[in-house]
C-alpha cells in the first residue's frame, strides 16, 4: 500500500508542476500505478533507499535519483540500481507466504480493526 500511496502522490505533484522521483522496492506496484521517474532497488520492503548502515550505498542510490531527475525525458522511466541485497535473495521466496506471515498476530489484528472501522465509515456514507 505504501508504494501505491507514494506513486499517487508523485503523479499528483508532477501533474501540478513539481518534478518527482520515487525510490522504491516494489517495482510491480509502482509501475502498475505509473509514475514519472522511478529508482528501483531490488531490496526487501523497508529499505528502498539502500541497505541499513550502508551510507555510501544510500548516497549512490540518491545520486541515481538526481541523475534521473536531470535526464529522464519521458514519464514511466525506471532505473534499476546495480546493487544486490547482501543477505542473498532467499527473502524473495518467503515474503507474503503462509510459511512466513508478513505481520505478526498483533499487527494483523490492529490492521483488521482499522479496516473494519473504514468499512463502517463507508457504510455510514462518511467516506
Amino acid at each position: 500500500m505504501c508504494h501505491q500511496t507514494v506513486s499517487l502522490v508523485a503523479r499528483y505533484l508532477e501533474a501540478n508542476g513539481i518534478p518527482t522521483v520515487v525510490f522504491g522496492a516494489a517495482r510491480d506496484i509502482v509501475e502498475h500505478v505509473g509514475v514519472p521517474r522511478f529508482v528501483h532497488s531490488d531490496f526487501p520492503l523497508g529499505s528502498p533507499c539502500g541497505e541499513p548502515h550502508n551510507a555510501a550505498q544510500q548516497r549512490e542510490i540518491l545520486e541515481i535519483g538526481f541523475k534521473l531527475l536531470e535526464r529522464a525525458f519521458v514519464p514511466r522511466t525506471t532505473v534499476q540500481t546495480p546493487f544486490k541485497w547482501s543477505g542473498g535473495d532467499a527473502w524473495k521466496d518467503l515474503i507474503f507466504t503462509q510459511a512466513q506471515p508478513f505481520l505478526d498476530a498483533e499487527d494483523e489484528k490492529a490492521w483488521l480493526e482499522r479496516k473494519e472501522h473504514y468499512r463502517k465509515l463507508k457504510a455510514e456514507g462518511k467516506r
Partner: peptide, 8 residues
C-alpha cells in the same frame, strides 16, 4: 521545486 518520495 522537486520532490523525493520514499515508500516503505
Amino acid at each position: 521545486e522537486v520532490a523525493v518520495l520514499t515508500p516503505v
